[in-house]
Design a protein around this nucleic acid. Structure first.
Length: 734
DNA sequence: TGCCACGCCCTTTTT
DNA sequence: GGGCGTGGCA
């Protein structure tokens, strides 16, 4: 597809001038192009002032990419005036500018999930609520759900003891957030929504009038609050353009509501609807396979993804002994492709859950192939970084109890649990933040003089930091914090591998601040600690560029990405589709199906799907049954391979006739070409070697023979005599 | 107060 | 398998 040419539906979406627009954008259909072209078109052709266009994404990465593209189309100057960002960064920006009209101080802090959890845990303790019956995680989940439905604690009909407790905890949570001048992620949207209402009531020209066009990417991922937020912003002009794909809705479990697409239609009956169904990314087989799987979802907007691309190679479905064989096989695929001239970065290995990554990592590490695990522990979630940030926030706002509690005894300075407990009682009694009630502690008979001295020393420490806050640069300030709190010294003293890692991370934090300072200088803005903290709260890991490495990631993390070669592992029932402990009442199978659709459509040229007979997971051995999703793949798009415990192909099912004829003439790699060097007959099993069978257990091979496509083995099982077993039912025992 | 052993429980995750 | 919280002990 040339860079300027748009197909008819794309052009239609781009040229749509005003009023509501709903774009269904299938995987690989050029969605990003449409949205960026549309914005560019509004600015360049329709003469909409750039600063009156608001474009919303879910992740900072997506926002950055969109901005970069727009810079390319419009030039830096114009692109910079556009409002491009995540729901939360844009919401926070509006609140910092206009929040005073709803009584919000502009220097509010933003609490992330960890902060929230710490706060709830604290409240449970203070209210003496059993955290077994009311786990902080569950409470937070419920608070979030209610907030998403725009429900207040007052609205909850607390008709059970259980609910009563919940509501009380929730009220406390809100009160303490207010006292700490903090907002959680949901609050950012709720409060900026309130702002709109307040302005409407006051009749002031405000946020609503700021924008002429609102555009939303990944609309299927919006939750209730986000949808209401959008509606509020676009209520007057209804120039609301939403782009999404219900087939890629994979975040239902965290509140995303695909039904917002239906709500959009209901709320805007006049909306123009455009469907982008042509895929430009993948081979014909891949597109066909993906569509076959997602078509079976119970509820979905009718769409038919298609492509003009060549059918390409068949999708390889590989049957393996266990997860180690699976890893070895993935490794072989990667090596083969690298020998052919591919780069490691062309490869991605997907899995359903993180726990699957370990074995894959081991295989790649041993083979000295550069890899990167996407996701996992995020930088700002590491404890040392959170500690440092807690100090920074405490210096800015000593009323923040969550931060106080986090670092009051880090590194240990003899302020134990009992002392903190008593201080908390005093704070509760006086209705003041913890930090403040260190003042006048001598009147507190329950707190010993020694403990009081330590608390007072801590108070001086924080006061000292507050004073330097004014004069230091942010990076200098972090340095000072690490020094004066003794944090760095404590880690140096520990002198362990972990401590070294933490010191490195803190160094990384400092360089992040240096970057921030440099950036501010470029924009001739003052580099303040508060400014950076906002940045840190809203940005997760600086989505490091992946470089020359093979990417390992969950299927969720893969959304929005594409790779020439993909290995999709763990395609077994119970694992993918995943079955948790409780069967789950939501249409989880549908979401798993969409997840499989996302996984498959990431691959451009070559897709290998693996499944295993047995898998060690969570310390248990599970018996694997091939995933229904693989069985649903159209036969002619698939070629099945069977591989032994050593990663060698034992047998390849004959390519389906339909495929062989349809692909005639087109250049392609054929079936077992990964393994030309391996005589299939051997299959890793040889007379004398030990094997395991699902029913008969451990046995020893007496002889092997070929029977058509199959290898049959004479196996002697202890106490059971000799049996003839097809090799595919045997697992080599080491 | 700090360390360690033990048991528990286990999806997916952005802001 | 392993991260995390708890509870017992030095």
């Amino acid at each position: 597809m040339s860079e300027v040419e748009l197909n008819a539906p794309q052009a239609q979406a781009v040229a749509h001038r005003s009023g509501p627009l709903l774009v269904f954008a299938g995987a690989g259909s050029g969605k990003t192009r449409v949205i960026t072209y549309r914005i560019a078109n509004l600015v360049a052709q329709e003469r909409v002032p750039a600063h009156r266009i608001l474009a919303v994404t879910f992740t900072n990465k997506a926002a950055r990419e969109m901005r970069e593209r727009l810079e390319g189309l419009l030039g830096e100057e114009l692109a910079r005036r556009l409002w491009v960002g995540t729901f939360h960064s844009l919401g926070a920006k509006l609140l910092r500018l206009h929040g005073s009209s709803i009584g919000l101080k502009s220097d509010f802090a933003i609490y992330d999930g960890t902060d929230q959890k710490a706060l709830v845990a604290r409240i449970l303790k203070d209210l003496k609520v059993d955290d077994k019956r009311f786990p902080a995680k569950v409470i937070l989940g419920q608070i979030g759900q209610h907030k998403q439905k725009n429900v207040n604690p007052d609205d909850v009909n607390a008709d059970s003891a259980h609910l009563e407790v919940f509501v009380e905890v929730w009220r406390n949570y809100e009160a303490r957030m207010r006292a700490a001048n903090a907002l959680d992620f949901e609050d950012i949207l709720l409060r900026s929504g309130e702002l709109l209402d307040a302005e409407l009531k006051l009749g002031v020209v405000g946020v609503r009038e700021r924008f002429d066009h609102v555009l939303v990417d990944e609309f299927q991922d919006t939750n209730g609050t986000q949808y209401r937020w959008l509606k509020g912003l676009a209520q007057f002009h209804t120039n609301l353009c939403v782009v999404g794909d219900d087939d890629q809705s994979i975040y239902g479990w965290r509140g995303a509501d695909v039904r917002n697409i239906q709500s959009f239609r209901r709320d805007h009956p006049d909306a123009e609807v455009v469907k982008l169904e042509q895929n430009y990314r993948s081979t014909g087989h891949i597109v066909e396979a993906a569509l076959a799987i997602v078509s079976k979802t119970a509820v979905r907007e009718p769409k038919k993804l298609w492509t003009e691309n060549e059918p390409g190679e068949p999708i390889h479905v590989v049957d393996l002994a266990d997860e180690r064989a699976e890893a070895a096989f993935a490794l072989r695929c990667i090596r083969e492709a690298i020998e052919e001239g591919a780069s490691p970065k062309d490869f991605a290995v997907f899995y359903r859950i993180h726990a699957q990554s370990r074995v894959l990592e081991e295989a790649l590490r041993t083979a000295r192939i550069a890899y990167k695990v996407v996701g996992g522990m995020r930088f700002y979630e590491r404890s040392e970084i959170k500690d440092a940030i807690a100090y920074l926030r405490l210096a800015l706002n000593p009323a923040s109890d969550v931060d106080f509690l986090r670092v009051v005894n880090v590194p240990t300075r003899g302020i134990g649990q009992t002392t903190v407990e008593r201080l908390a009682e005093r704070a509760k009694r006086l209705g003041k933040p913890l930090f403040q009630v260190i003042d006048g502690l001598e009147e507190e008979s329950s707190i010993a003089a020694a403990a009081r001295k330590k608390l007072e020393a801590f108070r001086s420490l924080v006061h000292g930091l507050q004073r330097s806050l004014v004069q230091d640069t942010p990076s200098g300030f972090v340095d000072r914090v690490l020094e004066e709190t003794g944090y760095r010294k404590a880690l140096e003293k520990e002198d362990s591998v972990e401590a070294d890692g933490r010191l490195e991370n803190l160094e990384e934090l400092r360089s992040a601040l240096l970057d921030f300072e440099r950036e501010c200088e470029l924009r001739s803005e003052p580099a303040t600690m508060a400014g950076w903290l906002e940045n840190a709260a809203l940005h997760s890991e600086a989505d490091a560029v992946v470089g020359e490495s093979v990417c390992l990631m969950t299927v969720h993390a893969a959304k929005g990405l594409e790779f020439p070669y993909v290995v999709l592992t763990g395609m077994e029932e119970e694992l993918f589709p995943y079955r948790g402990l409780d069967p789950g009442e939501r249409d989880e199978l549908d979401e798993e199906r969409r997840l499989a659709y996302v996984a498959i459509t990431r691959a451009r040229e070559r897709l290998v799907c693996t499944h295993v007979r047995t898998r060690q997971l969570f310390g248990q051995t599970r018996v694997g049954v091939e995933s229904r999703f693989l069985r649903e793949l159209p036969k002619h798009t698939v070629e099945r391979l069977r591989v032994d415990a050593y990663g060698r192909v034992v047998a390849a099912a004959a390519p389906a006739r339909a495929y062989a004829s349809s692909a005639a003439g087109s250049e392609r790699r054929v079936d077992t070409s990964y393994f030309d060097d391996v005589p299939a007959e051997e299959g890793g099993l040889r007379p004398g070697s030990f094997v395991r069978h699902g029913t008969f257990g451990l046995g020893r091979i007496r002889s092997l023979e070929r029977r058509g496509q199959e290898i049959a083995a004479q196996v002697e099982f202890k106490g059971l005599g000799v049996k003839t077993i097809y090799a595919r039912f045997l697992v080599a025992e080491e």
